[in-house]
Structures are given as C-alpha cells and as structure tokens.
Design a protein around this nucleic acid. Structure first.
Length: 346
DNA sequence: GAAGCGTGGCG
DNA sequence: TCGCCAAGCTT
C-alpha cells in the first residue's frame, strides 16, 4: 500500500492538467485512451480536441463515414485505431442503444480495446479495480522492484500484470492507475530518469543497485523491411488525376496514387515496362518526369519505404476522374501528404 | 507467439 | 545520424 499511497499523493500534487482528466464520461475517456495508444500526449492532444469538437457524442461519431473519421485521424498513425473506433461507436449505438459498456469484461468486446484500455476505462469511469499495464507501468515496476524479466515475453506480461493488480488501491483504482502512468511519463522516464526528485527514491531497488539504465529489459527487436514505391502521379489538361484506395496492409482504406512496388530501386525504363504502368497509360503518348530529387526513406517502426514520385502527363483526360482541387478531402498517409504539400500541380 | 501496424521526439 | 520509444491491439 505504501507504493500506491506515495505515488497517489505525488500524483495529486504533480499531475498535468489534461483535458480528459476533467471528465469521467466513458466516451471521452475511451476516445482519449485510443488516441494515446503508442502515442505521446503532445502528439495526440490536438486530435483529441478535433474529435471532441466534430463528434461531441458517440452518436455523432457513429453517424460519420469511415472516410471522414480517417481524414480526421490523418497524420496520427496506426490507422486501425480510427477504423476500430468508428466500428465500435456504431456497435455501441446500434447494438447497445448508445449505452457505453461499464465493465472490464464487456469493454474487451469493443474492437480496438484490449487489456490496457479496458482496465483504464473500467477503473477511471466505473471504479472497477483493474490494473493498467502500459509502457510506463512496465518501466516503473521493473525499476522499483528490480525485475529483469523481459517485458515483452509471455512470462513478463503475466508477471507484471499480476504485480500491478496486487498493488492497486481498490478504493481509488482510477487515480492509482493514472498516478503510476503519470509518474512513469514525467519522472521515471525511459531516458534521464529524474531520480533526484523521485518520491520513491529511498525504496527503489534499481536505484539502490544503480541499474536504472538497464531496466526494463526488452527482448530483441524486429528487423526493418525495405520497400521501394513508385507513385504514378497522373496529370491532365483538365487538372485531374488518379487516386486509388489501399486495400491491404499498411494505410488500409486510405488513398494514394497508382503504385508500382518493387523489391529494388528502378529507373524510368524499368517503370514503363511494368504492367501497372501500361494498364494506366500508353507510354507512347505521355511525358514522364521524375519529381523526386533524392530518395529519402519514409521510416515506419517496422519498414523503410523508399519512394519516387513520377509525374505522368497524359493527353487523355477522360479516364482520370479525381479533380486535383478535391484531393485534400481524401485521407492519405503522411508520405503522400508531404508530397502534396511540396508539389506544384500547375 | 510472432508479426504487422505510423509518426514524431529525443539524446 | 540513428536507434529507441510512446497511456497497445489484432491476427
């Protein structure tokens, strides 16, 4: 209980003033938790305000199109969160008469809500004593108790969940959970932990052993896949172009230009020999310019994408129906958005 | 159980 | 520069 009490007292004096801390409305807490998955507060804040403004209630969110939701989510990444958020809003409205689930077990039925998020909503909104275990909690517990079990191993996941659950203050589970996370985010940070100003620095195992920097332990990392994208940016006299919707993998249901993907960099000659190119235009009638001056990788957490944008001017206007002036209405990945911002169509 | 899924900040 | 990491979830 000492652990919880000390952190809770610290939290009540030091917590940041965040907008979602002014409410216990499960819709807003849910929204904030989804936005903050694998995302820093500074990055997610603007999106929280946008969503609350555009969708004040879960009914507003459920009534929107997926494309609208993806467009509002554009730039935040991990777009399955937006698709699942929208799907679950429709589920709550249509199947649960708009009544948000109030129990941990029921919350798990929502797409995009896993153990962490269900615990967070249940404890914060409904006072259910379910412990959250996010990246902060792993770090705080592994250091304070000196546990070197890898946090991404199946044993580690079980061990830390059990420990977190044993430590929870059942009287104020929501405050307790937020206290541990806030402490991890602002004091017991991944780098440069502020042990001098830590309320637990007289009882922290890792500090007493000077092994703060070695904890938490994480097992190996994935290897980065390299991909080579060639986008075909159609340009017509009528200021139209061609967009296509992605149908699998990364950026699902978002828009991009027709894509030629290869496993090595290619030049113009290899491009015009590609079937995708020839299905789109007749190389005898078009002019091709490579827009990209130097290819810099778009770095995702799990792949590096090397992209060339090819500008294809064609006399055939009728086939390409997307007006360039409408292009900003479509949800697109940052890779495409960056291109749109630097490219002058005229 | 491992892999796939974004973007941006930081040292 | 580059690797690490962020209030994780799904398949």
């Amino acid at each position: 209980m000492k652990f919880s009490n000390q952190l809770t007292v610290w939290y009540l004096h030091n917590k940041r003033d965040l907008p979602w801390r002014a409410t216990k409305n499960p819709y807003y807490i849910w929204l904030s938790e989804i936005i903050l998955q694998q995302t820093r507060v500074d990055q997610g804040m603007a999106y929280y305000f946008k969503f609350v403004e555009q969708f004040p209630s879960i009914f507003d969110l459920a009534a929107a199109s997926e494309e609208t939701v993806l467009k509002l989510w554009q730039g935040l990444g991990y777009y399955s969160r937006a698709r699942n958020l929208h799907f679950s809003a429709k589920y709550v409205v249509n199947e649960l008469q708009g009544e948000f689930p109030s129990k941990y077990k029921e919350l798990l039925n929502l797409k995009g809500v896993g153990d962490y998020t269900a615990s967070a909503i249940a404890s914060i909104c409904f006072n259910e004593p379910t412990a959250v275990v996010d990246g902060n909690v792993y770090r705080v517990l592994s250091r304070y108790f000196g546990i070197d079990t890898p946090i991404n191993s199946s044993n580690g996941i079980k061990e830390f969940k059990q420990l977190a659950q044993a430590l929870i203050n059942t009287k104020i589970p929501g405050t307790h959970n937020q206290a541990v996370m806030e402490f991890g985010a602002t004091v017991c940070k991944p780098q440069n932990a502020d042990c001098n100003n830590c309320p637990l620095n007289n009882s922290c195992v890792a500090l007493s052993k000077s092994i703060i920097k070695t904890l938490p332990v994480k097992e190996k990392k994935l290897k980065i896949r390299k991909r080579y994208f060639n986008y075909l940016v159609i340009k017509t006299k009528n200021k139209t172009t061609q967009l296509v919707k992605r149908e699998k993998g990364i950026w699902l249901n978002m828009y991009q230009f027709p894509l030629v993907e290869t496993d090595k960099p290619i030049n113009q000659q290899e491009l015009i020999e590609h079937s995708t190119f020839n299905e789109l235009v007749d190389f005898n009638t078009v002019t091709i310019k490579l827009h990209t001056k130097s290819v810099k990788p778009h770095k995702l957490s799990h792949q590096h994408i090397y992209t060339k944008f090819w500008i294809i001017e064609t006399p055939n206007s009728l086939k390409f129906r997307h007006s360039w002036s409408d292009i900003k209405k479509y949800p697109v990945p940052v890779l495409i958005d960056n291109f749109l911002n630097e490219f002058n169509y005229n």
